[in-house]
């Protein structure tokens, strides 16, 4: 300072406009706005999940915590087969969604606004359409007199109708369509972050378009692939409507087991235990995927 400070003046008026003053502390504290939603979810979300847990570790005639339900299920061949099928199905569906989703997401980032809008529209429409409606559509497509068999027989590809409806293959086809949007959106978000000049740089250095794609774009899109795969896997393994409707009860997956125990046999302990095992498997994949995904992150923001 180039001027001497004047002594602190305590006599400055503080009373003049006291009437129009409010004190800081009297303001509504912003964070309190989060309370209603939080309390609601604690009561109506956390407590029910707690009950799920409670039912899975209690058994009639046994005091305290017991793992008897877990032991029973995890030694049951039928249960383990179902669990295996659920995991395999989810992996297969995720792989199909990735193979179809990646080129589409790639083109999205390289096309003009009209194409982009069309792709987004075609992605969001099924995403928001009722799973019942979509599964019904697949029944119409896959059925004995459905679109696929009409085309196959009409073109002489097969002599008689191919059985797709009420088979695992039919469920795979239908589920992959359901999961494709969940794969696409993270892929698009990840690829939009990529600088298109990276590929141009690779091409100008002598790489072919295909090499530039596989050596530059694919590795750099890995975070999006991981995010999409996690989402797609977690949603497929917990999918209920499509396996029931398109599978027609010809096989079981984890969610159909849960539903049968809960509603048909009214065995809440088995239902809860199955649900918890499903959750653990799904969370393990999410956690594993996120750990894997962290490795693929480059540049600033990587941790």
């Amino acid at each position: 300072m180039d001027r001497p400070l004047e002594p602190r003046d305590q006599s400055l008026s503080t009373s003049g406009a006291r009437a129009r003053r409010a004190v800081w502390s009297r303001q509504l504290r912003l964070w309190q706005l989060v309370l209603p939603a939080t309390l609601f979810l604690v009561v109506y979300f956390v407590v029910p999940l707690g009950m799920l847990f409670y039912f899975s570790v209690r058994a009639p005639g046994v005091s305290g915590v017991t793992l008897v339900h877990f032991r029973k299920l995890l030694t049951d061949t039928f249960f383990l087969q179902t669990l295996g099928l659920s995991v395999r199905l989810s992996l297969e569906v995720t792989a199909v969604a990735l193979v179809l989703g990646f080129p589409l997401a790639y083109l999205y980032t390289r096309l003009g606004p009209v194409w982009r809008l069309a792709i987004l529209f075609v992605t969001l429409l099924p995403l928001l359409t009722s799973a019942v409606v979509r599964s019904f559509a697949w029944i119409v497509i896959l059925g004995k007199h459905g679109l696929i068999n009409t085309v196959f027989i009409g073109t002489g590809l097969t002599d008689g109708p191919v059985k797709l409806l009420f088979t695992l293959d039919g469920v795979r086809i239908a589920l992959a369509q359901v999961q494709l949007p969940f794969m696409l959106l993270p892929l698009i978000n990840a690829m939009e972050q990529l600088d298109p000049s990276l590929e141009h740089a690779a091409v100008s250095l002598g790489a072919s378009q295909a090499r530039a794609f596989f050596k530059v774009t694919v590795p750099l899109s890995a975070p999006g692939v991981v995010a999409g795969a996690i989402l797609s896997f977690a949603l497929t393994i917990s999918a209920f409507i499509t396996p029931v409707m398109v599978g027609g009860g010809s096989f079981n997956v984890m969610p159909t087991l849960i539903y049968q125990s809960a509603i048909v046999t009214l065995d809440w302990s088995t239902a809860s235990t199955t649900a918890l095992i499903l959750l653990v498997v799904a969370l393990a994949v999410v956690w594993g995927g996120m750990t894997l995904g962290r490795r693929f992150r480059y540049g600033p923001g990587s941790a």
């Binding site: 080129p103 099924p126 359409t129 019904f136 559509a137 119409v140 369509q177 072919s208 378009q209 295909a210």
Partner: peptide
């Protein structure tokens, strides 16, 4: 040839994906 093959492959898969996404809604 490689260049054309690459783009044909990308476009085929992408358009296939789009059709796959749209088909059930349209059909129902």
């Amino acid at each position: 040839v490689g260049h054309v093959t690459f783009w044909v492959a990308i476009w085929t898969l992408a358009l296939g994906g789009l059709l796959y996404l749209l088909l059930p809604t349209l059909i129902i």
